[in-house]
Design a protein around this nucleic acid. Structure first.
Lengths: 194, 194, 194, 194
DNA sequence: TATGAATGAGTTTTCATTCAT
DNA sequence: TATGAATGAAAACTCATTCAT
């Protein structure tokens, strides 16, 4: 089932990602994960302190990746509207490219243990703020409308993104690219001054 | 704790709504619900077939209410842009007015048992289609842009709405009314022809 | 195995007492206890919050009983030497009469969870102090030697008592009564002024 | 943490002694021991056959040491009362000097595996008998009272000694020397003829 | 001599649900 | 209508020990 050179932790992360995406953290038993990864429970607890740790790791990978990419896009010198468009596009494309991990990211934060949750929320807030600051930059530049708070628009957009997990099919008629363009267009249309 | 004329089933629904909204269906024990409602387990199983039933009932109430209201707004004779705006506004205001129930609605569909889930999905799809048809109507009328599929825009908007549960605070600085106007404005801006 | 009128909690306490006395708390699985009591695990957790609770209850019963009896003996108006003798005798007789519970009491305090342990230690200290104050009374009265601290003598005596669990056999040649007299004599001999 | 010339087995014994004394054999994981000793599990199992072996070794060291010393004291030519006093004093002083090992000795015999336990019990009995024979010698000589069986008095005294682990503090107000004198005095007072 | 990944049997605990009363 | 004792299956996690290297 697995190439012999895929490490046990990697196999566990893969299996957990698939299962969490499919059924949600709370509906997946550790037993299922290890079975699916072809290892024993003991092996899992050798590498991960808890089931929660597994989720945390998946969560962290997605968050780190998207934060990195957003920073790169933000730092670009293109006009602000282009940069916002690129940022919006990018988050969608990468979410779809790692759709299982993204689904976990989109819906499982409440399953994290108290402490981990706080930690993760803080990092997610930083991501949110970085995105928001793009919108604010456009507002300051007079390119984006300022009558709707940038904070609210950011929530609005990311709500749409998080919802992808519940309806979008990677094997459906809309490609990731198209989807990204549509979403970015809708966002741009809603923030651009009339 | 409860007025004596509040029926047992009603108390159970109330308690369950509060708890499910707060911790998520899977993290709430039946014991907690009955304790919080001030009744016993036996009483709960007298009125509801299962824990799932409780969720189903909460879910159904929200869905029925919003469907009804959407139908009323749709049937109005106002211009399509106004009707879409009203529909968008209405779903937000009523969601915030019943915020706990709405939160449950927004995030607990995966917790429903297979059969119930299918049933509920079908009804939700009908709601989605009704909303979408408003957008399509505007597209046919040449008022709304047609380059983004109405279906996708509908998902886009409802993603934003579903996300409210994770960040909006009813006791925060933004009133339900304001929030609804902002959201409807963003939607209208994104669908209106340039 | 059990008369039908023995309640489930009582059966659980009985079984746990026997097993804890025999093998020590840490070496007894909940599974063994419920099997021995003829009930299911669920039933046990219906009545007791945890395995620890079971131990706590056994512990508490012994402690309460012995505290009560010591208070009664202390309050007597007999000469202090007689009262100390009676107290010593009594703790031994009752310990042997409830030998399994006493054994648990003698050796399982370290198995209690942190919080429970603190609580129980405090109560045990009060018992210790009450006994010690008998010795102090004799010292003040000039009947008992004062060159050895009463606190230390108390520890000395209760060490002997706690040790009973490791060697004394209720079915051996020394009756509880004899044992009690021997121990009380040894105590009195060691505290009485030459 | 350790001088480089302390051998691995020695480090393991040290760490295990400290941990067993502190938390009891059953509450200490092999992982903790090796971590605390700064070695790996494999290393431990290279030198010791099992966790049990570790305990056995600690146990054996204490027992061998005390047996040796008791033999030396017994063989002396001093009057019996002096020899008993010396024996009592000695066991206390050496117990306090190796307090962690002594604590393990005092309370962990039940944790030994069946076979080891039997073996160890036999040796402990020989120690007990040697001590008892001192008392018997005094009884034969007419110096000690004979109305309390020597066997029982021996248990009585060693109960006190074993109990030290639960209350005595090496950094407390009573020095090992003082403690030993008090205990030996109490013993002598209780066995000496009135 | 030593490593540390892996095992697998065992642990305590949870919880939706049932059922005699 | 309601009680609450009891069930039983499943859950997450622990840990002494083994073994290929």
């Amino acid at each position: 089932m697995y190439a012999p050179d895929v490490t046990v932790p990697e196999r566990l992360i893969d299996a957990a990602t698939r299962l969490f995406a499919d059924k949600g953290f709370d509906r997946v038993a550790v037993q299922e994960i290890v079975q699916s990864a072809g290892v024993t429970k003991g092996a899992m607890y050798h590498y991960f302190g808890s089931k929660d740790d597994l989720l945390h790791e998946i969560y962290g990978r997605v968050l780190r990746m998207q934060t990195e990419r957003l920073e790169k896009v933000s730092a670009d010198s293109a006009p602000i509207a282009d940069r916002l468009h690129a940022a919006a596009t990018d988050v969608i494309v990468t979410s779809v490219e790692n759709f299982d991990a993204a689904k976990v990211f989109f819906r499982s934060i409440d399953s994290l243990a108290e402490e981990t949750r706080r930690e993760v929320r803080a990092e997610r807030r930083r991501y949110h703020e970085k995105f928001r600051s793009l919108i604010e930059e456009g507002q300051s530049a007079g390119v984006f409308r300022a009558d709707v708070p940038a904070d609210l628009t950011t929530h609005y957009f990311f709500g749409s993104v998080h919802h992808l997990g519940t309806w979008y099919r990677t094997d459906g008629p809309v490609s990731a690219r198209q989807l990204a363009d549509y979403y970015a267009d809708l966002l741009l249309a809603s923030v651009t001054k009339a």
